[in-house]
Write a protein that binds this DNA or RNA. Structure first.
Length: 417
RNA sequence: GCGGGUGUAGCUCAGUUGGUUAGAGCGCCAGAUUGUGAUUCUGGAAGUCGCCGGUUCAAUCCCGGUCACUCGCCCCA
């Protein structure tokens, strides 16, 4: 059969996957709102400049991963490859510096033109948390607490570990970066090909290299902790103490880095070994330079993003929010249709989930009810109509009894729909 | 963007050392059972063997290209 395929790297979300998404989002929303975060929805596309300015002209995301096009008015626009830039733009556009701290959560599709693999699509969905306007480490701690609560409630915390690092403030990071460049430049001949490119473009990323040969060099490379100035040290220890106070476990991974210039201090990733090469389930950090870089007032910020598809792979079936079990209305004989419809309508108005098939004899309709995992089938024939009753069959038990139409709603509710 | 693997029914997969009608299980549809489902039994539909081209008397099978998926790299959620 000739297939109509969706665009490469995009997927339809339906059936069980849709249930998984909904479960994840509802838990996310519930956790975020408990921390008094408010929802913000920014457009899924922005002027290309918004992303270029913040992500940098040389980053991979900008150079090869953006979905960019010219609209009919001649504007260069880009489908968002991440949330933070759009939210920071919205912060500036809406003059929200007047109402800091801004605690946001957001959710939606995100686009990167990449080669698809497991856990990596061209259109994927992220959940996002940001606190803008707070320079204190409490914000970092709180944002991590949200993440931890989310993972706990999704039942996947046991498969995930928090890797934590500090990049230090700007001064510390610049000094460290210089030291790294100097060190690796002395060992150019031993570096992998990829790492030679990184040395030019993004030297700190060498620390994350998967190349065996690089590992030996990385072992002896300068450590970022040796370059923290006093403010950086204090800030990092505040974050760590805060996490310990809340009982949030973490592992310091001093090779965890961020390439982009606006990142500072806290950087973290929740990773799992259950998703192949794409082990990062949730990641973020502090970005004190971002809003200013976009042309807004100097404003600190911290946040994270999490990939829903990756989460959806990890959650187990028992946590998935099941669809409410429905009641199937089964008219018996053509003359019962109108009354059956009316009963279905009344039950729906009472908040009960009802399905009535469009055709078929009783046997077919019962089969359908069973396939839909209905809890009750309600048979309504002329006989019942005359006596104002319904034959209610419990499909789990196989038993059935006549219930007065007047008591039907109460009966169904009592029997836990 | 780079390298490897895979592509047969809605799903999971057999199969053909190139040969005439391509199979199974599950699912789906129908009947046994026109006022009672999940079990059972019987029957049925469903495939241009991913697509295009090449080699051949003959290609689902061999070769090339292409598309999609997949594993890894780059990078990232």
């Amino acid at each position: 059969m000739a297939r109509l395929q969706p665009v490469r790297g995009t997927h339809d979300i339906l059936g069980e996957m849709s249930l998984r998404f909904r479960t994840i989002f509802e838990i996310f929303r519930s956790v975020a709102e408990r921390y008094s975060h408010e929802q913000i929805d920014t457009p899924i596309f922005e002027f290309t400049e918004t992303f270029k300015k913040t992500l940098g002209d040389t980053s991979d995301v900008v150079t090869k991963e953006m979905y960019t096009f010219e609209d009919r008015g001649g504007e260069q626009v880009t489908l968002r490859p991440e949330f933070t830039a759009g939210i920071a733009r919205a912060f500036i556009s809406n003059c929200l510096q007047q109402s800091t701290p801004c605690k946001f959560y957001s959710f939606g599709p995100t686009f990167r033109y990449e080669r698809p693999q497991k856990g990596r699509m061209r259109q994927f969905h992220q959940m996002d948390i940001e606190i803008i306007g707070v320079a204190e480490a409490q914000a970092d701690i709180e944002v991590l607490a949200i993440a931890q609560d989310l993972l706990n409630e999704l039942g996947i915390a046991k498969h995930v570990t928090l890797e934590l690092n500090s990049l230090g403030d700007r001064e510390s990071r610049m000094n460290y970066r210089a030291a790294l460049v100097q060190y690796f430049s002395q060992h150019r001949d031993k570096l992998s090909k990829d790492s030679l490119t990184r040395l030019e473009k993004n030297p700190m990323r060498i620390l994350d290299s998967k190349d065996e040969g690089d590992h030996l060099l990385i072992e002896k490379a300068p450590r970022i902790s040796e370059y923290y100035n006093d403010t950086s040290k204090v800030f990092f220890s505040e974050v760590r103490e805060g996490l310990e106070g809340l009982g949030i476990d973490y592992h310091i991974k001093d090779r965890l880095v961020r390439g982009l210039d606006y990142y500072c201090h806290t950087a973290f990733e929740f990773t799992t070994d259950q998703l192949g090469a794409q082990g990062t389930v949730l990641a973020g950090g502090r970005y004190d330079g971002l809003v200013e870089m976009m042309g807004g007032p100097r404003t600190p910020g911290v946040g994270w993003a999490s990939g829903m598809e990756r989460m959806a792979e990890l959650i187990t079936y028992d946590i998935i929010k099941k669809q409410v079990r429905l009641v199937a209305i089964v008219p018996v004989g053509d003359k019962s249709h109108t009354t059956a419809m009316k009963i279905a309508h009344d039950l729906r108005k009472a908040g009960i989930v009802v399905d009535m098939a469009y055709k078929g004899n009783v046997g077919k309709r019962m089969k359908r009810a069973n396939k839909q995992n209905a809890r009750f089938a309600i048979l309504i024939g002329e006989d019942e109509i005359v006596r104002s009753v319904a034959m209610v069959k419990n499909l789990d038990k196989g038993s059935q009894e006549e219930i007065s139409l007047l008591k039907l709603v109460d009966y169904l509710k009592e029997n836990k729909l």
